[in-house]
Amino acid sequence: MYARTSSMQADPARIDDGLAVIRDEVLPAVTGMDGCVGMSVLVDRGSGRCIATTAWQSEDAMAATAEAVRPLRSQAEEVLAAGASEVDTWEVAVVHRDHATPSGACARITWLSGDPGSADRATDIFKMVVLPRVRELFGFCSASLLINRAAGRAVGTITYDSRAALEASRGPTGSIRDRAAAESGAMVDDVAEMEVALAHLHVPEMA
């Protein structure tokens, strides 16, 4: 499984308008493409940061749709009053769901970078160090890890049932993150807390 993320900086006042267009027009168009297995959108209503993720059955399917999704991305950027998106492609390394994502769910996203040759080790550490501990936290919903082997980059996402559960997890997940980064030799580049505005990814369990 593979994923494409489009990150953009939107006008916070345009978030709801943008989500309506994504839900009603972009989502049906993207999920109708060959090999697509769903789409999700994370938003920070305070800063206007938005991250849309589409998942694909294969790297070939993802590459084949690169041009077809471009006008849809431009449509979302326009209605969100956003600048050009930062687009990244990833291999889906880990997916674990405890239960379906409820309305009001929130996620903490962590971006890391390190040795391009350490992707498998980072994946193992996520499975053996991160997953067992976050699964025990209040309100845990799901976890995923995306990797880019060539660039030595990874992004882990932990989703919680509510904003309250997300906030309660800050202390515990900080120590989990520090341990995982140290054991994998990775550097934490960024951490963000965002609302799960759209959750229609249908990637199978990969843990």
Rank of each mutant, 00 (worst) to 15 (best):
M1V: 03
Y2F: 10
Y2H: 13
T5P: 06
Q9W: 04
Q9G: 00
A10Q: 02
D11Y: 00
A13V: 01
D16M: 00
R23Y: 03
D24I: 00
D24Q: 07
L27Q: 03
P28D: 00
M33W: 04
D34S: 08
D34V: 06
G35F: 04
M39C: 08
V41L: 02
V43F: 06
D44E: 15
R45H: 02
S47T: 14
G48W: 01
R49Q: 09
C50I: 09
I51Q: 13
A52D: 01
A52L: 15
T54V: 15
W56D: 13
Q57M: 05
T65S: 14
A68C: 02
V69D: 15
R70P: 05
P71I: 11
L72V: 04
L72Y: 02
R73T: 10
E77Q: 11
E77M: 14
E78H: 09
V79T: 09
A81F: 08
A84N: 01
V87R: 14
T89W: 12
W90Q: 11
E91L: 02
V92T: 14
H96A: 09
R97N: 12
R97L: 08
H99V: 08
T101P: 08
P102R: 15
G104I: 01
A105Y: 12
A105N: 07
A107F: 10
A107R: 09
R108S: 13
R108I: 12
W111K: 15
S113H: 14
G117V: 05
S118P: 04
A119N: 10
R121P: 08
A122Y: 15
A122N: 15
D124K: 06
D124W: 09
M128G: 10
M128W: 07
P132R: 03
R133T: 04
L137A: 11
F138K: 08
F138C: 07
G139Y: 02
G139S: 03
F140E: 09
C141S: 12
S142I: 11
L145H: 05
I147M: 09
A150Q: 14
A151S: 08
A151Y: 11
G152D: 05
A154Y: 06
I158P: 02
I158F: 12
I158T: 15
Y160F: 15
D161A: 14
D161K: 11
A165S: 13
E167T: 03
A168I: 00
A168F: 03
A168D: 05
S169L: 06
S169D: 05
T173G: 04
G174Q: 06
S175C: 02
S175L: 13
R177P: 02
D178N: 05
A181Y: 00
A182I: 00
A186N: 12
M187I: 10
V191S: 07
V191M: 07
V191G: 03
A192C: 04
E193M: 10
V196F: 02
V196G: 05
L198G: 06
L198V: 05
H200W: 01
L201H: 01
L201P: 01
V203M: 13
E205P: 03
E205H: 07
E205A: 11
E205G: 05
M206F: 04
